[in-house]
Amino acid sequence: MLSLIVQRLLIGVVTVFAVSLIIFICTQWLPGDAAEIRLGQSATEANKAALRAELGLDKPLAVQYMNWATNFLQGDLGKSLAGDRSISESIGDRYQSTVTVSVLTAAIGIPLSLFLGIMAAMFPSTLYDRILTFVSVSLVAVPDFFTATLMVLIFVFAWDAVFGFQLANVVVIGNTQDMGVFELVGHYALPIATLCFVIASQVIRMTRAAVLNVMSSPYIEMAILKGVPRKRIILRHALLNAIGPIVNVIALNLAYLVSGVVVIEVYFAYNGLATFMVQGVQQRDFILVQSIGMLFCATYVILMLIADIASIVSNPRLRHPK
């Protein structure tokens, strides 16, 4: 099993390397280079050349890539094209709000949806199961900004109309520095609620499928025929074998959270990493896009890797070799 995990880790490292290459090459397509963009079209060739030399743009592509990659590994994300400020510095609090929202979403959404999904698998074809399945299947198919709009309509406008006050901020701005966990949840209520719905729809559906899949196996039939009570069948016989797929589902959805957060941050207009990146895209600030894109992608790859390793570790055949 250890060799398998090492193998996966190596593949993960290679993937991160490949990803960085893809991102680097993509941004090289841009017409004009950093020097031209920063100094404007009117700058003299001499000035541009000087800046190119300073930024290392006169070096061969391979060297440029190496510089970028090593700096990235050391936490130096370079300087944005828009200003002279280093990207690492300006990321600071944006990073914090993105991580806060993701962590709170995961902490609330995942246990809840695991519970709901397992319940649905325990009582298949009941009204509860049907409604849950219908809602989660529908939510999977709609865009994130539709879910967000629904949240706003329900918890802000409808709430206001009925109770006379708004339950949450539509535009999430303000200083979050001294907030406790509950205050944070209140502050980010709508983004968290939206993201919870988005990942819950996936996690519920896939957890239910994973448990049902195990429930249809012959050893569960055998447990039934041995007179094992239903609760024990689910908790001891089924869940033990469904853990692998379920952990996999969780990791995949955390990975999804990483990219799903883009639309949500823009929708609720708060300053997170993703909004920062979108700004960079709009200003065609490719160094910024490159760096933050890499940050997101690396996180994503690592979470996928965890999913992969989790499914290896949860396999009894690999855990207890002959």
Binding site: Y219, I224, L225, K226, G227, H237, L240, N241, R317
Partner: peptide, 24 residues
């Protein structure tokens, strides 16, 4: 049925490999 199953009457399936829970 629970008091009967596994107690009064027991079942042996065709494929033992599939009938044993792999994780227990």
């Amino acid at each position: 049925l629970r008091p009967y199953r596994g107690e009064r009457v027991a079942y042996l399936a065709q494929s033992a490999a599939a009938t044993f829970n792999p994780s227990i």
